[in-house]
Design a binder for these strands. Structure first.
Lengths: 111, 111
DNA sequence: ACAATAGTGAAGTATTTACTTCAGTATTGC
DNA sequence: GCAATACTGAAGTAAATACTTCACTATTGT
């Protein structure tokens, strides 16, 4: 589920906003309520909730409501999925460069 | 330069589109021209060029024009910057869980 | 020289995004 | 019970996005 293109769309889209990245950053230090996430942000609480919904739809954040407070947590598997997509492409590139280096070294030997 | 928030906005935004991810994926296997990038995509060449401009503005791709063909390459440092942002937050989360585990183990010893 | 190739640039349009405000609901503490 | 707290939801708006088409320029192969 986590590797399908639509989910990656949502995750990268979610990370493309500085307010949302700040929220993820805050959550990486531990769970927080909506108000706690909102506190450093210069926008209405409504706007923060909308950002939070984007994060939740992307799978990056999971929330649970206890009484009147909504507690938010990072979903590390989703972070890992996004990280993985990038690192696979970077590694493919680097492996290619390595092979190219080997090839050049070999043809040099044969000269 | 690569860690400033605006650059991360552009990189994650660039990765949030499936056509652009396909282009990055293709480039991870080696350099390609605009037409080669366009070939698997069901859209006009103009649209592809616009996607390519987004990728270039984000720093993920570098292009160079030789004659009438524009050759495109991945910029691995930019991929690394995006990857790094994510992994730092994931690691912060995991370290926190570890500390929490240690704490729980200790308090259990003391019971 | 000419045709085919490879890409560029400007408009135009439909959709999505990132907010706002305002009015509402459900919990909690006294 | 009542006020304060912690959200929730709907509507509205300005700007950004993801395309399209069409007209155009620069380069290459014959």
């Amino acid at each position: 589920m986590l590797h399908d293109p639509a989910q990656l769309d949502l995750m990268f889209q979610a990370l493309a906003d500085p307010a949302r990245r700040l929220m993820v950053d805050r959550l990486s230090r531990g769970p927080a309520s909506v108000s706690q996430l909102a506190e450093p942000l210069a926008m209405s609480l409504s706007a923060v909730v909308q950002h939070l919904n984007v994060l939740e739809a992307s799978g990056l954040v999971r929330t649970e409501k206890l009484g009147r407070v909504r507690s938010c947590q990072i979903e590390p598997q989703a972070l890992r999925a996004a990280e993985h997509w990038i690192s696979e492409r970077r590694l493919a590139w680097e492996r290619r460069l390595d092979r190219l280096g080997d090839f050049l070294a070999e043809t040099k030997d044969e000269s």
